[in-house]
Design a binder for these strands. Structure first.
Lengths: 206, 206
DNA sequence: GCACTGTTTTGAACGATGTTCATTTTATCG
DNA sequence: CGATAAAATGAACATCGTTCAAAACAGTGC
């Protein structure tokens, strides 16, 4: 009992330290010895709680996904609440989701990058529960799409949601890539909303 | 004279070995000792030709960018040659570029991934000539966009080209991500062309 | 208290890695 | 050929993630 409590405490301390390190210096700076020092434990103690550093990185990414999920949910609800026709609201939600995604990425740059930079070590693959967390993000898009494209089957809608998310993700990714040469955030946001709006119009006139 | 020839030979042998290694086992498997063995040189010899392994990775990526550039040019020309109105041709070119990009990524998966997985070591940044190679890809999109959106300024068109490329890149990236859960290529190609076509329609009706 | 036993924690040690640089080899020239 | 400069070499170093024999600890019976 006390034992597992101690382990749980250490687990949290390690995730906290890893999250802080990633936020400050990026995923590549996740070093076992730094973590042990930061969390106040022995080097080997890390491996009594996580099988390896990859599992710790997944734990951090899982936190980030949950935060992103909450952020997108909030953005969608705010856009939905503004009234208007269902189609207008749905279009607003799509744009709000894209803009919200961009703002999240820009506002938590290092942690957001870690979501996609991270690769499982050779031979292992992502735990299913983490893949599910990722897939859940697409769900935010499916609701407005159901309004805009009521003729689509559930599977078709899921595919389209995935594609739209991916397109927005690409714009955010390449838009934030170079810290120096990249666009100022407001211009980038304008581009993202413009393209998403164009996709919305194009889909309606399909 | 003979000296610089020998260096040039070694340089090519190293890039060849690195390219083969990346193609077969990914960017993460770029190991100095493997390269030296493969290229038939001493470990230290690598550092007489490249300042570090990052520079070697950039050399490989540069090759890949040139190959991608040629592939996209070919795809655009083929789509252009099919005739029809200028607008129809331009729309075809946009779709052909997206599909061509997808096929390139799927057909040279590991090398294509290396283009975007690679990060410069702390403190250094990408050589400008390599950034230029990347930016040149957007140029392929600017020509059809000039037809579809003649009212745009050069800068606006460049921005839009960048955004459209980024959107397509995102779809390809996430579409090819999971080796297991990912879509079969034909379905993915259909999604990409569908979304790109929708963006084209949406932009026309802006 | 103490001895015995099983569990948990620890950090030195291991194997890999990128990079350096004293040493060795090779080339050049008088 | 001998002397000197240039180039190539690979052992050595610093830094990783990870392991595991040893030490510290916790419980139990007497």
């Amino acid at each position: 009992m006390t034992v597992s409590l101690r382990r749980e405490t250490l687990r949290k301390a390690l995730i906290d330290a890893a999250e802080a390190g990633i936020s400050a210096r990026g995923l590549a700076a996740l070093k076992a010895r730094d973590l042990a020092r930061e969390a106040g434990c022995a080097l080997g103690a890390i491996y009594t709680v996580f099988p390896d550093l990859a599992a710790l990185a997944v734990a951090v990414n899982s936190r980030t996904f949950r935060l992103l999920d909450a952020t997108l949910r909030e953005a969608a609800e705010a856009a939905m609440a503004a009234g208007g026709t269902p189609r207008a609201a749905a279009n607003r939600v799509l744009i709000a989701l894209a803009a919200g995604y961009l703002d999240f990425a820009a506002g938590h740059l290092a942690r957001w990058r870690a979501l996609f930079e991270f690769r499982m070590p050779e031979g292992q693959d992502m735990p299913q529960w983490h893949l599910d967390e990722q897939a859940a993000l697409f769900g935010h898009l499916e609701r407005p799409l159901a309004v805009l494209q009521p003729g689509l089957s559930g599977e078709e809608r899921a595919l389209l949601a995935r594609s739209l998310f991916s397109a927005a993700h690409g714009m955010v990714l390449l838009g934030l890539e170079g810290k120096i040469v990249s666009l100022p955030l407001p211009y980038l946001r304008q581009q993202v909303t413009m393209v998403v709006a164009a996709m919305g119009r194009g889909l309606e006139s399909a």
